[in-house]
């Protein structure tokens, strides 16, 4: 086997980046919805719900992704009668997991907003819900952008673990190409390069949002 044969594998490997990106966007999206909701409940919700969410966060942050994938694909979903494909399971689990992390990101962001912002909103006559949705959340989301960007690059690399359920993402394809051609280093280097590019694009994207949306903090800023 030589490099020529290997170069024919490039499209196959590149296609893997679509899968990885799909897993990441799916996980990040679901995680965002869960993260925002759960962070609000954790900050403002009743004690029982707060306890439940703490447990949820503890579980998803405290167990390896691989265990969660098995657990959901082969125990929890079947037990619930949900007939989930490996892909649906992977995206859902990435989402649930990222939700746990994102809820802590948003909780931190909400916590960093001064108490007085809430006070001022209430003094204007806003209901709690109005104050949260139009004063607290918009600020928290802006504050959290850099960490969400970070979460993106974390999930991107986490998504490689989904190979364990037969998901043909980037890393798995690199491995199969390496094995079929007997060339070990180059496929992995290419996969690594694609990860770098994807991370770069994602970070740029979040940076752009950040620059557009961040709260100016200096005169003439």
């Amino acid at each position: 086997m030589n490099l020529m044969t290997f170069s024919k594998y490039l499209p196959y490997i590149f296609e893997g980046s679509l899968w990885s990106l799909g897993l990441v966007l799916g996980g990040l999206g679901i995680g965002f919805a869960i993260g925002v909701t759960f962070s609000l409940v954790q900050v403002y919700g009743n004690p029982l719900l707060r306890r439940l969410i703490s447990f949820y966060v503890w579980f998803f942050r405290g167990t390896p992704l691989i265990v969660q994938l098995f657990l959901f694909h082969w125990s929890i979903f079947p037990a619930l009668g949900i007939n989930s494909t490996a892909l649906t399971t992977s995206i859902t689990v990435l989402g649930l997991r990222s939700g746990a992390y994102q809820s802590q990101i948003f909780r931190g962001a909400i916590g960093s907003i001064e108490e007085n912002q809430m006070l001022a909103a209430r003094a204007l006559g806003m209901s709690n819900w109005d104050a949260i949705s139009s004063i607290i959340l918009p600020q928290a989301l802006r504050i959290a952008i850099p960490q969400i960007s970070n979460e993106y690059s974390v999930i991107l690399k986490d998504s490689a673990i989904c190979f364990i359920l037969g998901i043909m993402e980037l890393m798995t394809r690199a491995k199969y190409a390496a094995i079929a051609t007997g060339i070990a280093l180059i496929p992995y280097l290419i996969a690594g390069l694609i990860y770098l590019v994807l991370t770069y694009i994602g970070t740029m994207f979040f940076n752009l949002i950040y620059l557009k949306k961040r709260i100016p903090d200096s005169v003439e800023g």
């Binding site: 899968w19 990106l21 799909g22």
Partner: peptide, 22 residues
């Protein structure tokens, strides 16, 4: 938007990249 992004990504993968059903 969050949920939609999630499920669109899943749907996209299933339909265009050929995920088999269990």
């Amino acid at each position: 938007i969050g949920i939609a992004v999630g499920f669109t990504a899943g749907w996209f993968l299933r339909n265009y990249l050929g995920e088999t059903s269990k």
